[in-house]
Computed example of a mutant assay.
Amino acid sequence: MGGVSIWHWIVVGIVVMLLFGRGKVSDLMGDVAKGIKSFKKGMADDEVETAAAARPAEPVRPLEDQRPVTAQPAPVGERKLG
């Protein structure tokens, strides 16, 4: 007593088949398979996103280089005509 043998599992399986019928059990197993496939696809998508995020970022430029460049007129004495 206390141990679960293969015969116990067979009896449990027969009772489940009688209660739910073959159609519902096969539908349930199909749904489980779809869930596993979706989970694997999601894990693969996460790996692709992780690989893309792992790329090194561009180096940060010093503040002097980040100032906007504005066109300044040349001094009056240095203007070229023509």
Rank of each mutant, 00 (worst) to 15 (best):
D46Y: 02
K80A: 11
G30R: 15
G2V: 10
Q66I: 00
A57V: 06
Q72E: 08
M17G: 08
A74T: 08
V32E: 08
G35T: 03
G30K: 13
G42W: 10
A44N: 05
Q72K: 12
R79D: 02
P59F: 04
H8W: 11
R79H: 02
V12Q: 13
M43Y: 05
V25M: 10
I10E: 06
V15S: 12
I36C: 03
S38R: 13
G3C: 10
W7M: 12
V69K: 10
P75N: 03
T50Y: 04
E49N: 13
R55F: 09
V60A: 11
R67D: 09
E78A: 13
G30C: 12
R22C: 13
E49H: 04
V4C: 07
P68H: 02
A54V: 02
A74H: 05
G2A: 13
A52Y: 05
S5P: 05
I14S: 02
R61A: 14
V11L: 03
A51N: 04
Q66D: 14
P56H: 06
S26P: 03
P73D: 00
L18C: 01
R22H: 09
G3E: 15
P59T: 12
D31N: 15
P59E: 10
S38D: 12
E49V: 04
V12E: 15
E58F: 10
A57K: 15
I36V: 11
G23P: 00
W7R: 14
T70M: 12
E78Q: 13
V11T: 15
T50W: 01
G21D: 00
K80I: 14
P59N: 05
P56N: 05
P75L: 03
A54Y: 03
T70C: 07
D46V: 08
V69Q: 11
M29F: 15
P68R: 07
D45M: 03
M43F: 09
A54M: 08
E64R: 00
L19R: 09
K40W: 07
D27P: 01
D46M: 09
V60H: 04
D46F: 00
D27N: 07
R79S: 06
S26K: 14
P59W: 04
T50C: 03
V25W: 08
T70I: 10
P59A: 14
V76E: 02
V12A: 15
P68K: 05
F39K: 08
I36M: 07
V48I: 12
Q72L: 12
D31E: 11
L28M: 05
P56T: 10
M17A: 11
G21T: 07
V76W: 00
I14G: 03
L19G: 03
F39P: 00
P75S: 02
P56S: 07
V32F: 06
R61L: 15
E49R: 07
A52Q: 05
P75E: 12
M1H: 09
V25N: 01
A51C: 03
G30W: 04
D31V: 04
K80M: 13
E78H: 10
T50M: 07
K24P: 03
M43T: 02
